[in-house]
Design a protein around this nucleic acid. Structure first.
Lengths: 155, 155
DNA sequence: TATGGATATGGATTTCATTTTCATTTAGCT
DNA sequence: AGCTAAATGAAAATGAAATCCATATCCATA
C-alpha cells in the first residue's frame, strides 16, 4: 500500500515529523525548498494526501478551509486545540466526544459514523491585554491577515 | 447588525428555509435562478456569509471543503449528522460536546474557544442490504470522489 | 412625495489552494 | 544492465470564494 521510498517522500515525512504543529502543504513545501531540498509542490500535495490516506497524518482545516497536516502520534491522539492567532496546537483530551459520537452512531442507526472535531481559540501567549472585547458567540470572520501568514507566535 | 431587507436576501433566506438540508452557495444560487429569481452568485455568497455571521445559519464542510449552509432552528441546535451517501442531515443532541468544549476552554486558558463538530455516516435508507455496493439513494450527486476513505478521524 | 447618503447588488475579474495532465525520471525488481 | 510500473514536476486547469466598482435600491428625513 505504501508507495515507493523516494527521496522526496522521505523528505516530506521527515519535515512533517520534525515539526510538532500543523502545517499546510504550501508551507511545508516552502520549508523543504528553503532547506535546499529540490521538490515540487505537486509532490508535497501528493505525499501528504497519501500520508493521510494511510493514517500517517491527521488533518484539520483552518478558517479558510485550507488543509493542515500533522504526523499522527503513535498513541493516537486525535483532537487538537488550535490557536487562531499563532497557529500552534495542543492535543486535548477527547474521551467524552469519542463516547458521545459512539452513542450517536448507536442511537441513530447510521453506519460507519465518523466525526471531525475542530477546536480553535486564542492561546494565552496571543491574548491582547485588554483592548478588544470579543463577542461570546461566533463572530470572528477571518483572522486578520497576520494570522493567516505567520505560523509562528510573535511572543 | 442585520443587513437590509432586500428582495434578494429575502429570497435567499426563504430558499434556505424551505430546504431542510444543507446546500452549497452555488446550489442555492442555481435553485433560485431556476425558480426565476434574478440574483447574482456573489449576492448569494454574501447573504449566506452574513447569515452565518449573525447566527442565522449553521455551516458544515463537505469532503471537498465546500461550505454547506442550513438555517438554524430557533432553539439553537448546532450539530448534525450527515449521510455521506444521500447528503441528508439530522440534528443531534450535542449538550455533551458543548460542555466538553466549555471545559476545554477553562482548562487550557485559551480565549474565545470555538468548536466545530462534524458527524457523517450512512443513514438507514442508504445502507446496502447485504453487499458492499454503491448506495441506492441519490437525491443529488455529491461526493463522487469520496471513495478515498480514511478521514482525519478514523474511529 | 422627493432627496440623498448609506448600503446592497452583480457581472467581471482576481485570488489561491488543490488537482490534473503528461512527458520525463526513478525505484525496485530479475 | 534492462525493464516497467510508479513517482515526479512544470505547466495548465479547476473551482470556490473574495474583490472591484459602476449601478441600483433602501429608507430616514425634510
Amino acid at each position: 500500500m505504501g508507495g515507493r521510498t523516494t527521496r522526496q517522500r522521505t523528505a516530506v515525512m521527515r519535515a512533517l515529523a520534525r515539526r510538532q504543529d500543523f502545517v499546510s502543504a504550501q508551507e511545508l513545501h516552502a520549508l523543504l525548498v528553503t532547506d535546499g531540498i529540490r521538490i515540487g509542490l505537486t509532490t508535497v500535495y501528493r505525499a501528504l494526501r497519501d500520508l493521510e490516506a494511510s493514517g500517517g497524518a491527521d488533518v484539520v482545516r483552518d478558517e479558510a478551509g485550507e488543509r493542515l497536516y500533522r504526523t499522527r502520534p503513535a498513541d493516537g491522539h486525535r483532537h487538537y486545540l488550535l490557536c487562531r492567532a499563532c497557529g500552534r496546537s495542543r492535543p486535548v483530551d477527547s474521551d467524552v466526544v469519542e463516547e458521545w459520537a459512539g452513542r450517536i452512531a448507536a442511537d441513530t442507526g447510521y453506519a460507519a459514523v465518523e466525526h471531525t472535531v475542530e477546536l480553535t481559540g486564542i492561546c494565552a501567549n496571543c491574548q491582547p491585554s485588554g483592548d478588544e472585547g470579543e463577542p461570546p458567540c461566533h463572530h470572528w470572520e477571518r483572522a486578520p491577515e497576520a494570522a493567516g501568514r505567520a505560523r509562528s507566535c510573535a511572543n
